[in-house]
Structure formats: structure tokens, C-alpha cells
């Protein structure tokens, strides 16, 4: 490959690191979710954006929450487990069963997040991409196939509209 080929190739994914993190995600998920092996997994995240505007001065502050998202097609259930970018630990799992939620849909704007309303009181918007480079903010994992499978499942079986 020539110099220009290398320049325009873009960042390469470290598959060794990605595979190690996928194994950690699986271990954490199986640790907190009963029969965790039934679920396929992707990494997702939530964004909490607070905006400020003082005339000349305006901007925003974003808080990122990392998530291990599991889904089981048979029971039409999505399980969300909060975690941290280095996958050193995780919180308790939250279950979203298709028959019990208020509504779920794929957002269009400003992001194509997967939105789930368990009830009228709150919602969760899960953002997911095939790979995110910034290890300080996101879990380093390559998940192109898994993301496609999750998107298909969400839109064909889980979404309510």
C-alpha cells in the first residue's frame, strides 16, 4: 500500500483489544443476569446533555453513560446493564419486556437512538455504533454484525410503532 493509501485508510480496529472487551462484557452480563447466555450483546451508551445560553456565551455539557445491552429474540426482551469504559464493573440489570413497555421506537433526529419508554415517567435512549475510537469515553469494541442484528430485532420485533 502506498503512502496515500495509508493516509486515507483511516483508523484501524485493534481486534485483540476488541475481542478481550467483548469477553469482559459477556462475563459481566452473565454475572448479573440470570440465564445471561440466552442474550446476544452489544455495547451502547446514553447521553445526558445540559445546555446553557447567556447571550454571547452558550455551550453544552454532555454526560455519557456506558451500557451493555442484551437482547433475546425468543422472549422479546432487552436487558440494559450500566458499566464503565474499562469494563471493571457494572450495575444491576434493568429488563424491558416487549409486552410490558409503554412504547419503543427508533429515533430519527438528532440521533438514531433506540428509545424505550417503560412507562409514562421516564425513558431510555440507547445510542449504538459499530465502533467508537475514544476509549476514555466508550467501550472499545467492534460490533458491526451484532449491531445489525440488534437493529433488525428492534425494528421488526420490539418497536411498537
Amino acid at each position: 500500500m502506498g503512502l496515500f493509501g495509508k493516509l486515507f485508510k483511516g483508523p484501524e480496529i485493534d481486534m485483540e483489544k476488541s475481542n478481550a472487551n467483548a469477553a469482559k462484557m459477556r462475563a459481566l452480563f452473565d454475572h448479573v443476569v440470570p440465564e445471561g447466555a440466552k442474550y446476544r450483546l452489544i455495547f451502547g451508551y446514553t447521553e445526558d446533555v445540559s445546555r446553557f445560553n447567556f447571550g454571547f456565551v452558550h455551550g453544552s455539557k454532555t454526560k455519557i453513560g456506558n451500557l451493555i445491552v442484551g437482547w433475546d429474540e425468543a422472549s422479546k426482551t432487552i436487558v440494559v446493564v450500566p458499566t464503565v469504559p474499562d469494563l471493571s464493573g457494572c450495575g444491576d440489570a434493568t429488563f424491558y419486556r416487549q409486552g410490558e413497555i409503554l412504547k419503543a421506537y427508533r429515533n430519527k433526529y438528532p440521533t438514531d437512538a433506540f428509545v424505550i419508554y417503560p412507562d409514562k415517567k421516564g425513558y431510555i435512549a440507547i445510542n449504538a455504533y459499530d465502533w467508537l475510537d475514544d476509549e476514555s469515553l466508550y467501550v472499545y469494541v467492534s460490533q458491526e454484525e451484532e449491531l445489525k442484528a440488534f437493529t433488525d430485532f428492534f425494528q421488526s420485533q420490539f418497536a411498537t410503532k
Binding site: A20, A23, K24, A27, L28, H31, V32, L87, S88, G89, C90, G91, D92
Partner: peptide
């Protein structure tokens, strides 16, 4: 509750 990564997985990775 916060659960830490099981030790075996840490060693394996």
C-alpha cells in the same frame, strides 16, 4: 449495587 469483573475473566483477558 456495583459488581466488579470476576477475577477469572480478568486473568483470561
Amino acid at each position: 449495587v456495583w459488581h466488579t469483573l470476576p477475577e477469572e475473566t480478568k486473568q483470561e483477558t
